[in-house]
Write a protein that binds this DNA or RNA. Structure first.
Lengths: 239, 239
DNA sequence: AAGTGGTCTAGACCACGGC
DNA sequence: CCGTGGTCTAGACCACTTC
């Protein structure tokens, strides 16, 4: 059979897409066999190596488990460790609905350290947005996000509707790739304490994030102060 | 050429091993080409697909970068994000020498919650070791580690010589695989404060780790309290 | 134009798992 | 025992980068 790629997608990706669709659609549940290499090869009229490649990649992504001598099975749903998620997405994973109240929205040009973190010249104009974050109807965190003033089309109104992540991705075509975070502990000063309805001096988890886009550049700087009694960070580390 | 595997290792792993050796040995530096698929195939008298597999796996592990049309190059040295490291290893990465002082060493059987975390029956005998951790000559953290009493051959003396990780790996043949961590912030109570020479009420980073071995079971539970002014957690998250 | 990685073929043998 | 994934062969064409 000649190399025939009806549409643009490589054959192995089409096989993956079909398997993924059957998982999302619920026809395949965790533990179910997805079919052997040889089986998939026949069905998709493809060589065994190609079917194998499709399954091997899915395994690497954690979608399936492969056991020699046994077969390839849908992997149990995995907890999303070390995933970069918007505040809304994080809460959704815990069964809560997130909301925000904007505290301030301004252009600033006197934050040289933050400009440097975003690989911009000192004195660059930055958009600075402060928001109080709610989970359910409890205040969880105070978040301050800085980004290049190029994004100043991000009006307050638009931010109150959708999440910053989705606005960036859809309106600006920026796809976020990864974030480096520094995490430490601090103590609530008066203003933060009152915003979060916690006593002055209560412990807070402080997270400083630099979020990078796929084009490689640092795009967002986020400073978050999280109520320690409502927020636990989950991390998985590998040897 | 017949399938000949002189020793036990698959051909593609031998190719990888040779490349890794040349990188470790300094003959190949970041940015250097490691040779094309076809080239490696000829050298190792192996089919192109096999050479390709070797390079593809090395790329997945972050050892090399592959650029279509250009070649395969040694990847720049990567910062080890999200790596499970012993206290000693962590400090070494920051150019410090770590040391410990053992605070207590005991067998306990009244920690059902921790036993459960280690997938042991409630009431199981556990080895509980408390240590004060120093970086240079400053106290950094108080760490309490719990593990099954099966490891009670871990004498105090042995622990004061080598790191717990290395004793486990070398004396018990346990290889650690990954750790799940819960991170939050808390406040130093009197005893902890005096051990760490910080004021009562100072913020601490609290890290609870369950460390899993390659055989799949949770093996270690570690509760760490880290001086927030001396310790920052670095994490990378991916989209 | 030459060389590279990305995809693919149509098979093969081996080691292992479950029956 | 039979089927599975793991490894491997000896090529091929395509899309891309570099020169």
């Amino acid at each position: 059979m000649s190399r025939d790629r009806r549409n643009g997608a490589p054959a192995y990706k089409k096989i993956q897409a079909l398997i993924l669709k059957r998982i999302e659609g619920g026809q395949l549940k965790p533990g179910d066999a997805v079919g052997s290499e040889r089986e998939l090869a026949k069905i998709h009229r493809v060589s065994p190596m190609t079917a194998r490649h499709a399954l091997a990649c899915l395994e690497r992504e954690g979608v399936v488990d492969r056991r020699r001598g046994a077969g390839t099975f849908v992997a149990p749903p995995k907890i999303h460790f070390n995933k970069l998620m918007s505040f809304t997405e994080q809460l959704a994973g815990r069964g809560l609905t997130g909301s925000s109240r904007m505290l301030s929205y301004a252009l600033v040009d006197d934050e040289p350290e933050i400009a440097a973190r975003l690989a911009l010249p000192a004195g660059s104009r930055l958009l600075k947005i402060q928001r109080l974050r709610f989970g359910g109807d409890e205040a969880f965190a105070v978040e301050t996000v800085y980004l290049s003033a190029d994004f100043s089309g991000l009006t307050r109104a638009r931010l109150e509707r959708g999440s910053l992540f989705s606005v960036l991705e859809h309106q600006y075509g920026v796809t976020l790739a990864h974030a480096d975070e520094e995490i430490d502990a601090t103590i609530a000063e008066a203003k933060t304490a009152s915003l979060l309805s916690i006593p002055y001096g209560a412990p807070l988890l402080r997270i400083r994030q630099v979020i990078f886009s796929t084009t490689g550049g640092p795009t967002l700087f986020v400073l978050g102060l999280y109520r320690s009694d409502r927020h636990t960070l989950l991390i998985r580390r590998f040897r």
